[in-house]
Write a protein that binds this DNA or RNA. Sequence first.
DNA 1: CTCGGTTAGATGGTATACATTTATACGTAG
DNA 2: CTACGTATAAATGTATACCATCTAACCGAG
Lengths: 233, 233
Amino acid sequence: MFAAVPGRRVPDRLRHKTVAAAVADSLRQRILNGELRPGVQLRQDALAEEFGISRIPVREALLQLEAANLVKIVPHRGAVVSGLSLEEVEDIFRLRVQLEPQLLALSAPHLTDDDFQDLADLLKTYGEALSDGEILRWGELNRRFHYDLLRHADRPRSLTIVSGLLQDCDRPTRLQLTASGDIARAQREHTEILHLCKLGKIDAAVAVLRAHIEHVGVSLVTLYRDGLAQARF
Amino acid sequence: MFAAVPGRRVPDRLRHKTVAAAVADSLRQRILNGELRPGVQLRQDALAEEFGISRIPVREALLQLEAANLVKIVPHRGAVVSGLSLEEVEDIFRLRVQLEPQLLALSAPHLTDDDFQDLADLLKTYGEALSDGEILRWGELNRRFHYDLLRHADRPRSLTIVSGLLQDCDRPTRLQLTASGDIARAQREHTEILHLCKLGKIDAAVAVLRAHIEHVGVSLVTLYRDGLAQARF
DNA sequence: CTCGGTTAGATGGTATACATTTATACGTAG
DNA sequence: CTACGTATAAATGTATACCATCTAACCGAG
């Protein structure tokens, strides 16, 4: 048996989920999918009944979602799905431009063959989802691609921050890509970044990544200014 | 009466707190004060009894604290006060160095006379707390000074991130300042930054702020490497 | 039309009981 | 004596029922 070392880590796969966590996951997915749009109110009773559980885990799930910026809870008024203002989207993309390239430079040298394989698989799945028109799956794949690229940078806090940013700009990004037809372009850029990393041309990969993020950001702001998108994402 | 505008904001002062929020505040303060040190377990029953409430608001308070990185909750094992590894502290300071100066450049031009007055008051209170040896109050004052300096930068997400960083490096910073005797130095640097902002010498203020943060960060890492600090902050 | 009160509905919280899981202690086999 | 498995205690997670409190909408009086 394993010794009862105080600081030991339990792998996530072996750790069974609580009901609250499961509900949080379910709601998170629905929000990111756009099934639950910004402004929609989440009533505890309804959710509890829908999931066939009591209100307590629902409340705790909502708290977890609030921590992830996915809903906003106002005391005695409940939880509503939160959207992002234009300023927030701009800020998020500026932060990504500032943080991700830097992390890539640190992470790329540590990417193993297995990592490259996994990333290539992601791109492949991504391409399939594309041709099938499954925009929904695309969001998660995109997030994972970006995150997995940066994972090996030894910057724990930066990584959690970027992870949050990726999640928050998920829906706006999908909006931009579908509205502008840049989906294939993103796919190409991802492929190029991965290719450059494999060749050890890290500086070049970093440059492409920066341009990649900047493009989506600028494009989104333009989209918004032209009134093609709603006021809130 | 106020109109029932959907997006209206209720001032925090007028919004009564829930029990869960009050408990979260109380625990947050104790953790930041160092009264509850990293690794300490927080048992729901004990807290509920101590506050004279039931376990549910305690659970919700703990969830909020976990969102703020102040405790770590493991299913069925409960919540423990979380500390920071050296890597995390380094990362946090690198992020601060990267983000805060940039925000100051954006925020400083928008500082009003009232803002300058408030900031000066903070420094004054800060000085008094210093001579009284009230290191505990110092933490909050320091955070507020940094935050208020940057508040007017129109970067909502960046500000919340920096706010989190400031909170998380609060205790390590106090540790550094007391161990190295740099408290007065920090006070001087704060004063200088404020002075430069008032004169409109924003670039100079930004430079001082950057050096200010870098100094504490480097000093902390040295402190750690010399074994003068614990393994976790 | 505004002001003020009333009321319905939702959230916040208590109390209690029970289910799960973790960790520890114990006892037995080897 | 150690190793292994089982019991047991303690803490967390969840359910249920009930009440308190707040919000928002309705409604009537001025």
